[in-house]
Simulated scan of single mutants.
Amino acid sequence: MENSYRELRYTYITNSPDDTVTAGEIMRDIMKLSSREISRCKKFEDGVMCRRPDEINRIVPVRLIDSLFPGDELIVRVYEDNDNAGDIVPADGPLDIAYEDEDLIIVNKPGEMVVHPSYAHYKDSLSNYLLGYFIRSGQRHVIRTVGRLDRETSGLVIFAKNRHAAALMAQQIKTNDDKENAQDSLGDEPDNMSRRKEYLALCSGVFDKTHDTIDAPIRRRPDERMIREVHPEGKRAVTHYEVVHQYDDYALVRLRLDTGRTHQIRVHMAYIGHPLLGDNFYGKEIPDDHGMTRAALHAGYIEFMQPITGEKIVINARMPEDMQKLTS
């Protein structure tokens, strides 16, 4: 195999005493490989193989339509191109790794850092630093983000190390909307039963309710590229909040989303009269930001199923120093 490819190997031993099953059914239904991944496996001579115990453990190629019998071991190899999409430049920089395994890496992003490179942040994005880490640690991975956070928001960002893990993690994102609407998110991600994410925010003012649900549609403000607003013509957006601690003129609030609209938390909290401290887009009327220079929002908790092993993973990330100072 050429050095430009990296091998991922998956195996499954059939055990049903009554029914036969095809290689394709195992790859689709049990290994959860996508059609694209299956097609790619078929291109390589050793992409789809079977070890048959009744033939002195002989390993032979199999077709997707071939039946496997109890005791047969299906061996699937997925070869991935090591070239990094987008030509991201590796860089040395701060990287707070909260979790890492063979398939995923989760990084606690500082506030005021972009996730992906851009014209203004060609070498100082989280992706630049992560690629630098991969190279220093001898890993060869393409940068694949599973969801994202906007520049000002701190907290946990998931990256997949291979296509298969990325596809399975994407399946864990399900909202009350259709898939097209779910892709609207460029900042906050939707929650669901298999992947749960919670945020902490510092919101201005004194809350009348200790917890509530905001169900108000959000759209992009006309003639504005970044600014969003609550409007009847917008897409449905649902935010649940709970006041963790009320201070004199601001509160620490825990939030959970049912949908994932751009700036959803920031827009919704401003809509009910409690914009985030430091929010220059939606909190310009706040009399005192208490020293916050960014929107005080932190994605501090995530819960999901490891896409390959099925293990439940729970990660907590402490608030960054700028928010901690206002909660101590």
Rank of each mutant, 00 (worst) to 15 (best):
T20Q: 12
T309C: 12
K43E: 12
V115I: 01
F281I: 07
Q171Y: 04
R148V: 11
I97H: 01
H211C: 15
G205L: 06
A182H: 05
V78G: 07
R163W: 00
I158S: 08
P90H: 02
Q246F: 03
G205K: 09
V62R: 15
V157Q: 02
P110H: 05
K284Y: 01
R196G: 07
T22D: 11
R58T: 14
G47W: 06
G24Q: 11
V76F: 04
C50D: 04
Y12Q: 03
S34F: 07
R225M: 10
L104K: 02
D289T: 08
R6C: 06
D124R: 00
V48D: 06
E25T: 11
I308L: 13
E152F: 02
V89M: 08
L8K: 13
Y199V: 10
L168Y: 00
R36N: 11
Y122N: 03
Q183A: 10
R221E: 15
Y133V: 01
E100P: 09
N181L: 09
M49I: 05
V243G: 09
R225V: 11
D103E: 07
C203N: 10
N316W: 09
F207A: 13
D212L: 12
M292T: 11
R144H: 02
G291Y: 11
E198A: 05
K179C: 01
N128S: 04
V76Q: 12
E242T: 14
D249C: 12
L68D: 11
D177V: 05
L126K: 10
S127I: 04
G187F: 00
D289P: 03
H211D: 15
K325E: 15
M319Q: 11
G300W: 08
E80N: 09
R220S: 05
C203Y: 04
S39F: 04
G111D: 10
K161L: 01
T210M: 12
V243D: 09
V115Y: 02
L131M: 08
R151D: 07
M31F: 09
L8M: 07
A216W: 13
G86D: 00
R195T: 01
G310V: 03
I315K: 15
K174S: 05
P61H: 15
I59M: 12
N3F: 09
E303L: 13
A270L: 04
I26G: 06
A270W: 03
H121C: 01
P53S: 05
I315L: 15
Y199W: 07
T210R: 13
L8G: 04
